[in-house]
Amino acid sequence: MTGSEKTKRPVQPGRWARTAVLYVVLSAAAIVVLFPFAWMIMTALKQPGTEFDPEFFPKQPTLENLKRVFTEFGFVRYFLNSSIVAVSSALFATLFASLAAYAFAFKNFILKEKVFAVIIASMMVPGLMYVVPQFAIINRLGWMNTYRAMIVPHLANVFGLFLLRQYMTTIPKSLIDAARIDGANDFQVYGRIVVPLALPVVATLFLLTFQFHWSNFLWQLIVTNKESLYTVPVGLSMFKQQHEQLYALKMAASAVSIVPISVIFVFAQRYFIEGVTKGAIKE
């Protein structure tokens, strides 16, 4: 506002008023969007039995609910499971997508275009379509109630392949050729040139897959029925069914379950935003 804008438009008299109105509207929108989370946290800090008090701030704030989530219920285990599933899924999905993207971006092989088209076309399939047959396959493989079942079916990330291939095709061919002349093989080109150059996109994909698997609910619910394997959302759903009335505890459990993603988001926001803008419309 302080004259940093190019002098393309004359300074309007209503400028300050307009800015003020914008801030009021934006703040109102932010309150609407974020209020549920604030309410959740405030409720989590209320004494059990006083969850429905109309005050926003708890009269006698307590950390007891948060403590009970970890001490009396299995959330430590659920966090561990979610971490194992989300980290390994993100790691392998990113690795596999980047390897395949390298092949599609820099290699020549038979049926390349056709294979790519088929893979991309699969993005049209609604996710729910896969639930029944994947469940059947997991059963046939005898993988029920294993980490494998939670992780392996999602390791072919088509969106990630698309994202990475798009990016890799912008890497100058001359760089690759120069390395080849110096005697580098494919793995060296991949590991020392392509991946380092594509690192922002690789990071984006890692974070997006981590976030997806941290929140993946339906699939983890279906392939596990042992409490020791519950992930955070599944544990939360069981908790919700068994303790319908314990609102403060439920809100405390909800609040802690979104902490990891929120923290990651605050520090790595730009990767999430890039993932959205790069992935959506690219022609």
């Binding site: 390897l99 092949a103 390349k112 047959p133 994947q134 396959i137 079916p153 390791l155």
Partner: peptide, 26 residues
């Protein structure tokens, strides 16, 4: 060239085949 491409593709393609393509038929 084809063989080395396949090496890079195989992890993705195997998972894709078993858990994304085959399920449509299954």
């Amino acid at each position: 060239e084809n063989v080395s491409a396949l090496v890079f593709l195989s992890p993705f393609i195997v998972i894709f085949g078993v858990f994304l393509a085959w399920p449509l038929f299954y």
